[in-house]
Design a protein around this nucleic acid. Structure first.
Lengths: 247, 247
DNA sequence: GAATTGGTTTGATCCACATCAATATTCCCG
DNA sequence: CGGGAATATTGATGTGGATCAAACCAATTC
């Protein structure tokens, strides 16, 4: 009596909603969970949300309640100063986690905006805390995810504080390429989802400088650029740009 | 038979080691713990470590094992690039937590160097995870601490990416002042523990620019500077520097 | 208290990137 | 499919902060 019913429930989940059936499981969840534990997770993530290009998952100062695992699409997170200047703090793709900035003060500290039509899994934070008290590997995984975000930001600080324009852009391209690769996409060709201005904001440069530096890299045979389409022709060359002195 | 013995044990702890007896309890631990729970914490933090000025609590690439709560003193955390350039990623004082960068990859991602003779409480991370599975408010508190670190770094990214030199330094001074205040020290007068070069590294400026900008603020009557001694004379003025346009 | 060392201040000059401006390309939406 | 708004590229010029250089100051040490 019970078994088939349970099976049925899992099936429905599997079709539309389940972590157990998600291709991103390795990116976004710990490995080595038991079946029983994965079922618990499926119950934790009970909502998906579509976010249209230009819309936000959350906005600064909004009450914090959930984290968001990106299921598909592409996002930027950004701070806005009173005077309107804004600073892009990160670009985020499938498998990344959004919203951890909100935990500390119970309200979000930045805007998370979709740069293309996207989909996120809503993870009520209370449930996550609850489950991570029960499932050790989940707790561990979550702590690692937060820690990696801290380390990522360290890297951005290094970039903003100590690198020149060409180094920043080279680091940016190599980072993007690496992240696409680890998600099974081409390392050498991809489409940028963000504008030159957004790249500039992230890298602490003006959009003109971003554009010029792209052109320079193209002249030097390091990349091919065609608006948003980027081909990496010489990734070793890009690595050499990074961390070599001015000359 | 048991009670006095226990009392004795706690006493010894209380004298030299215990969270239960620590003046920083509100900064570094959650409030609202039961006596029993605080005792558990006392057992978690079973080592203190003195760190002499110039020494490190941990270094980049070192195996991660513990977090460190600063009991007294002052630290910087910094990344070093292969070519020697380095980037200070933060300044840390009593009550702050060090080492969270190490969780994600099981090895530390920066150096944590004492800028004056200091003392830290060593928190074995495994024990912390264990306890935070048992004590809900501890779990919650720890997550908030990590999240706040993320938000702090967002702020630094904003500073490095979108502010001019004067704004950066004003933001830096106001932030320091605010943190001293919240620890019961004077908001208007304090001694810098770091050199101009370290401030510059943190703010993405050269030491000469830091020095010049201090002098400029002094001329403008905003602050008094005498080497490492800073007096804030017009904090409203400093706030006005922050976020006003170039002119 | 002279000498050494590490840090700070200040001045003169330079340059990487910003700013201003004009044109070109692509994206949409009716 | 056409016209208008975003977005990108490229050029000319300006400037904030870097760089180079020289005192200056404070704290040790002998």
């Amino acid at each position: 009596m019970r078994a088939p019913k349970l099976a049925r429930v899992i099936d429905i989940h599997a079709l539309k909603n389940a972590c157990s059936n998600c291709s991103l499981r390795e990116v976004c969840l710990p490995t080595g969970l038991s079946l029983e534990e994965i079922e618990k997770l499926d119950q934790m993530v009970y909502t998906r949300k579509r976010v249209k290009r230009g819309d936000s998952v959350y906005r600064s100062e909004e009450k914090f309640g959930s984290l968001y695992a990106i299921r598909s699409g592409f996002f930027k997170t950004a701070l806005v100063m009173e005077d309107g200047r804004d600073q892009v703090t990160g670009f985020h793709m499938a498998g990344d986690m959004l919203g951890m900035d909100g935990i500390g003060s119970d309200q979000h500290a930045c805007n998370a905006v979709a740069l293309e039509d996207s989909e996120v899994c809503v993870i009520p934070f209370g449930r996550l805390e609850e489950l991570s008290r029960e499932i050790y590997v989940l707790q561990q995984h979550f702590h690692k995810v937060m820690s990696r975000e801290i380390v990522r930001e360290h890297g951005v600080m290094l970039l903003l504080g100590s690198m020149r324009a060409e180094e920043r852009l080279a680091a940016f391209l190599l980072n993007l390429s690496q992240r696409f690769t680890s998600r099974g996409y081409s390392a050498s060709e991809f489409n940028l989802r963000m504008t030159r201005e957004e790249i500039g904001s992230y890298l602490g440069l003006k959009l003109e400088t971003v554009s010029r530096t792209f052109s320079k890299f193209q002249e030097d045979g390091l990349i091919g650029v065609q608006q948003k389409n980027i081909r990496i022709l010489d990734s070793e060359g890009l690595k050499r740009v990074l961390g070599r002195d001015p000359g």
